[in-house]
Design a protein around this nucleic acid. Structure first.
Length: 552
RNA sequence: GUGCCCGUAGCUCAAUGGAUAGAGCAUCAGCCUUCUAAGCUGAGGGUUACUGGUUCGAGUCCAGUCGGGCGCACCA
């Protein structure tokens, strides 16, 4: 819609003799009586024009020239806003576009010809996914969908490490449980993984190999088995939420030397050293972040000779630059908040364009059951498992609940609410609107023999003029702008709110306007409007990864 | 102590620096002989934690105070 107003307003400003570098802001007023769109340009420029805003607004209005039949009314209101009211003809005429474009409606071109990478989940295979990971997973998946909807070619990547110390402990944990299974006395340290799944894996190995492995102290077999089993289970859990990655990036590849015998990690060290940001002391190799104003330097290679996580993180991002992504989105939880500034700093020093990197941090999840808030910890094995939650409330509710709050706010996941098959549950409100439309279309087919999906008599839409029809149509046309806003803010929650308002407006329209019982042309027009609504809901649901039931 | 996030209706949360701060749930009052009542209409409910500042205008930006969450390793 900005595209509709911008040229007209710009040209009016020129004609009025206003020169300004202020950005022209066109917004939808919260209150409908202030029109469909409004601009505050007169308020912004009044000072530099040495005029009062209302007077200036009137002058601007004189020079506004819109295409015929689009604008019903323009007025100056309040301190100097210019408010625009569309004709219902223009709104309904525009709704045709939704029906013409179908699944492609709302697809933007901002990312056309560009590649984006969204990295999310990225849990090391040390245990089943927890609810906290789920939020990041769904957030990342929705962001990937949103970027794809803007025309980007999106790679969904999972970054993991199966070579670190945690994995060693995992292997050792499984070995101990296996020994226990073989009837040996064991001492199971607190530092090891306590979860029941460790016993399951041990049991699995025992069933395969019997007790023969008890003779060896080799951890490798246990680690490998555990990794394979856990990774498979992680993917299975993600699959239940329709989360699929295109690419798995193993951190360890950054440790292995290339043809020239140099590892990616080593190249990072060399490059930073050349820029004067590396020093060695206390037996370790340091990134001199004190030169950047930070309190402490950061370790890149520990005195043990192993890289700390920061070094491969930098290398990993360089790999993204080398793979030539125009946008790189990193999704992670609030507990990793301190992780990225150093990486960004290092990349800046190495002359990479870090403005391509977008960070989406999601705050924590607490679950409420019976009004009791539960806290969790992976290590202690008492974490809430994502699988259990999906068992409990289903995939749709899981996904929707994770993104129906802003990522910046703590999520209070009310398990009982999500389970309810009733009006209190917001998932059903959205899905019901879709099911209701499907049912309506089926019924219309039966009663009148008219199928809006196989007709192109779209101009009938222009017969619709009632407020509830107009408001619904207007809301549908906002879909492309909502996608843009969601991408810009990295916030799928915007889409949830938007779809909720679409559902609400449809229900009102349905309540107020008889459809099948209306006279034939109006009936057809209203069926077209319903079909367009269903299209928007479907397109939106696809981005959120929620199913669109045809009946409920 | 310090970095980041948060503080808005009884509860869970919205609100690209805009006009009378909005939804859902809960509460109360209405609407099904008519296309799905898992729906619709209406009512009540607020010192946007507090104090200053910036400007035509602040829930939003800035400074400070108070309160909550998450980090602050040669773990990832």
């Amino acid at each position: 819609m900005h595209e509709f107003f911008l040229p007209v307003i710009k040209s009016a400003l020129r004609s009025t003799g206003i020169e300004t570098d202020k950005q022209i802001i066109i917004e939808q007023p919260a209150d409908k009586k202030f029109g469909d769109f409004s601009t505050n340009i007169a308020l912004l420029t009044a000072k530099e024009c040495k005029s009062n805003p209302r007077e200036l607004a009137h002058q601007i209005i004189e020079h506004l020239v819109f295409p015929p039949d689009t604008i019903a009314q323009i007025e100056v209101a309040g301190p100097g806003f210019i408010n625009f009211h569309f004709t219902s003809f223009f709104i309904m005429h525009s709704v045709r576009q939704i029906l013409h474009e179908g699944n492609a409606y709302g697809k933007g071109s901002i990312g056309k010809g560009k590649r984006a990478i969204v990295e999310y989940v990225s849990a090391n295979p040390t245990g089943p996914l927890t609810i906290g990971r789920g939020r990041g997973g769904v957030l990342g998946d929705c962001l990937a969908n949103l970027f794809a909807a803007q025309g980007y070619e999106v790679t969904r990547e999972y970054y993991f490490n199966d070579a670190g110390r945690q994995m060693q402990i995992l292997g050792e944990s499984v070995r101990l449980r296996y020994m226990e299974r073989c009837g040996k006395e064991i001492v199971f340290p607190d530092t090891h993984y306590q979860g029941d799944y460790i016993r399951d894996i041990a049991e699995n190995i025992y069933n395969q190999h019997g007790a023969v492995l008890a003779e060896s102290s080799d951890v490798m077999t246990f680690k490998k088995s555990a990794e394979a089993i856990i990774f498979t289970s992680i993917k299975k859990t993600l699959e239940r939420l329709s989360i699929r990655h295109d690419s798995y990036f193993n951190e360890h590849t950054l440790y292995t030397p290339d043809e020239a015998g140099i590892s990616a990690n080593q190249r990072v060290i060399d490059a930073l050293k050349e820029k004067g940001f590396i020093a060695e002391y206390d037996g370790a190799t340091w990134f001199l972040t004190t030169k950047l104003g930070q309190e402490k330097d950061k370790v890149l290679i520990k005195s043990s000779g192993e890289p700390s996580y920061r070094l491969p993180d930098i290398g990993y991002h360089i790999s993204k630059f080398e793979r030539d992504f125009a946008v790189m989105v990193n999704v992670f939880g609030a507990d990793h908040i301190d992780e990225y500034p150093d990486v960004i700093e290092a990349l800046k020093i190495l002359d990479y364009d870090t403005s391509r990197i977008k960070i989406a941090i999601n705050q924590f999840v607490t679950t409420t059951v019976d009004g009791q808030t539960l806290k969790m910890s992976t290590r202690k094995g008492n974490a809430d498992l994502l699988d259990d939650l999906i068992d409990d409330v289903g995939a749709d509710a899981t996904r929707l609940f994770f993104i129906m709050r802003s990522k910046d706010s703590h999520l209070n996941f009310d398990v009982e609410l999500a389970k309810k098959q009733s009006r209190e549950n917001p998932v059903f409100y959205l899905q019901y609107a879709h099911a209701r439309i499907c049912s309506l279309l089926r019924m219309a087919m039966q009663e009148t023999g008219f199928d809006p999906a196989s007709s192109e008599d779209y101009s009938l839409l222009e017969l619709l003029t009632s407020p509830s029809e107009r408001q619904l149509g207007f809301a549908l046309l906002n879909y492309p702008d909502m996608i843009k806003a969601s991408v810009r803010l990295l916030e799928p929650q915007k889409m949830v709110e938007y779809l909720h308002s679409v559902a609400e407006l449809f229900h009102r329209f349905y309540q107020e306007c008889p459809i099948i019982k209306a006279e034939p042309d109006i009936c057809k027009a209203r069926l077209f409007l319903s079909l367009a609504t269903r299209q928007i809901l479907q397109n939106g649901f696809r981005i959120l990864g929620v199913t669109a039931p045809e009946s409920m």
